[in-house]
Design a binder for these strands. Structure first.
Lengths: 196, 196
DNA sequence: AAAGGTAAAGTGAATGTTCATTCTGCTATA
DNA sequence: TATAGCAGAATGAACATTCACTTTACCTTT
């Protein structure tokens, strides 16, 4: 199943989509399992057949989304020669996703996972930030990016993107995000690129 | 009362400090009023004399912190001539606060206020982001900063700072933040400054 | 300065509600 | 008619909140 695609197939998928929507609208803790049940048009019994409990439902959403994001990033990295092309593709991806599926971005980037899944062994040890930092480390090797702490480079390159999404989701920005792709990209890239 | 100062005076302050600590450690929803009561060494009855309910307790913390942040920003803006000086002072302030009082930064910047206080008329209509955007708009007028959407400028200038704090609080960065003040400032400032 | 009075500060057992979760039994299909 | 899949009333634990009561602090009067 893919979260980027709302054509629901199985009842299990319906539950996952309904849960994610409600988590976005009201927050994980304010969403009751019965609301999820209702929105997914499914009985509680069935819901509990598919998912051990509410937390496992959230975990499933999280790990599915995490995996989809990792796949996306990896294919972006694979399909672009330069770090600068990667960066632009990632910003574009983020902005488009934020407009089409704010609930996904919100859950991946802004949700408080440790609060929701307290005993969580990290579902997957290498997350999107690590992929990005690795890509940037390579770009430093080959002289495309200035040498600096990889975390600082990652924050400089995508911090503004993420902050702008936060503004947008919070209603502090009314224009659609894709309007700003070029501007944000150039500004951010400039800040870490090796000067000519 | 000031949150930047832990010498607790009144019992009311003790409650607020205890609550903020617990909210940071476990999250708002996972913190029970009885835990706050215990940590503050106060009876439940007294807690409910001071605060109508758990939500109002959170609201009080939020608006107090919001006000302290606004005051800080306004005095920074007042005390510095150029936008660049302001920016550096704000980054320094953020980084130092994040090291000394992570719970404060976390609650101001990363907490999901709408989840916690759903029916919230905005406690105060002009928040820190607006102050920053206003400062940047002026800096665009006088030619210190390139002309662009104020939200984009704000995101470009402080997005990396905030993202780096997020890394640090999340354990993805082990070095203390103040180490990076200069580097982050120069990188961020460069990205929005008018080129010479 | 002692007694009396009263408002504020404080207590914690008891209450009631909200939910996650369970589990018995129903229904449709083979 | 057997059984896998499903429904939803019932359960019970966790928790926020209340309330009837006690103690303290501080006046006021004699």
């Amino acid at each position: 199943m893919s979260f980027y695609d709302t054509t629901e197939q199985t009842r299990r998928d319906k539950i996952l989509h309904a849960a994610l929507k409600l988590f976005y609208a009201k927050g994980y803790f304010k969403t009751s399992v019965h609301e999820i049940r209702e929105q997914a048009d499914v009985s509680i019994g069935l819901l509990y057949r598919y998912f051990k409990n509410k937390e496992e439902l959230a975990k499933t959403i999280y790990s599915d989304l995490q995996q989809e994001t990792i796949d996306t990033f990896e294919s972006i990295v694979a399909e672009h020669e330069t770090a600068s092309d990667c960066a632009k593709a990632i910003i574009t991806f983020y902005f488009e996703l934020a407009e089409s599926y704010p609930e996904i971005i919100d859950f991946i980037v802004f949700a408080r996972h440790k609060e929701i899944m307290p005993l969580g062994e990290p579902i997957c040890s290498v997350g999107p930030p690590e992929i990005i930092q690795e890509m940037l480390a390579k770009a430093m090797e080959n002289g495309e990016v200035r040498r600096m702490h990889p975390a600082v480079a990652a924050a400089s390159l995508f911090g503004s993107t993420i902050r702008l999404i936060q503004f947008r989701l919070g209603g502090l920005l009314t224009e659609p995000l894709p309007t700003f792709v070029d501007q944000v990209f150039e500004t951010a890239w400039d800040s870490i690129a090796v000067k000519p």
